[in-house]
Design a protein around this nucleic acid. Sequence first.
DNA 1: AAAATAGATGCATTGGAAGTGCATTATTGC
DNA 2: GCAATAATGCACTTCCAATGCATCTATTTT
Lengths: 138, 138
Amino acid sequence: METIEQILESKNIRVTAMRLLIYKFLAENQVAATLSDVENAFEKADRTTLYRTVKTFVERDIVHQIDDGTGIVKYALCEQNCSCEIETDLHLHFHCNNCNETVCLTEHKIPKIKVPDGFVSENINLVVKGMCDKCSGQ
Amino acid sequence: METIEQILESKNIRVTAMRLLIYKFLAENQVAATLSDVENAFEKADRTTLYRTVKTFVERDIVHQIDDGTGIVKYALCEQNCSCEIETDLHLHFHCNNCNETVCLTEHKIPKIKVPDGFVSENINLVVKGMCDKCSGQ
DNA sequence: AAAATAGATGCATTGGAAGTGCATTATTGC
DNA sequence: GCAATAATGCACTTCCAATGCATCTATTTT
Ligand SMILES: [Mn+2]
Ligand SMILES: [Mn+2]
Ligand SMILES: [Zn+2]
Ligand SMILES: [Zn+2]
């Protein structure tokens, strides 16, 4: 079991108090978080610091960015050993139109998608919208 | 062959000069257009009018809104008889990371996607990112 | 240890895009 | 033509992303 410190260091991210806190926040959160969510969790911290911290995490592939169609970017921790590139890392995301929460369905990989001749697929974003388990009442 | 006037009227959209122009612009455009694209095409028109015209088109299901992950909404005409809802209308979109253009791949329908128990799928957004045919050099 | 360097954080400000309230103009139905 | 209704235009607001620069902190070098 790697500690958070080790995870950060393995990605050449300097360990700071703030970064540890933000990492923990994302780790404890079951749903993808917006920057505002992070802000609300750390009211004393500066918005820019939070913004840049999360951005660093994304650049170093320990957090992935989710575009669920709401127009507001959401963030979630990557799985261990995720490279954020290989096809096997691509999972689908579910956005609940009722509670507005977005979750990673990491077990649900994205199926092979055919594209026309001449097009080269490098990445795939798949978002399913509807009613989440909590909101559908079962 | 329906005229544009007939298409608008069939969806209870009043025919105005501006709306005809915007419709034609979208029809001639092979790639999905941002609001800025529309603005640039009609510099004399007011931004709000363009915004609300496109919005009306979306609400009446003659234009669909595309969220390709760039953070900027894009618009494209729906196909004839599109309801924007039925599963058979859902096609995939391709976003080129090189030229930044997004195109509808209307022939490529979105495959069935399984979601976990309790989740109810109502809509699916599938965007493939990579290199388009023009940019890949073939 | 002190100095030098690099990196992180905080504050102020900017920019872009979406959205709205309200006055004016055009269109429609009578 | 007149009244009602819808479309358009202008001004303004809100929201989030992003950046320049000063300051503080940690690391490295001497
Ligand atoms: Mn995810
Ligand atoms: Mn499309
Ligand atoms: Zn929900
Ligand atoms: Zn291209």
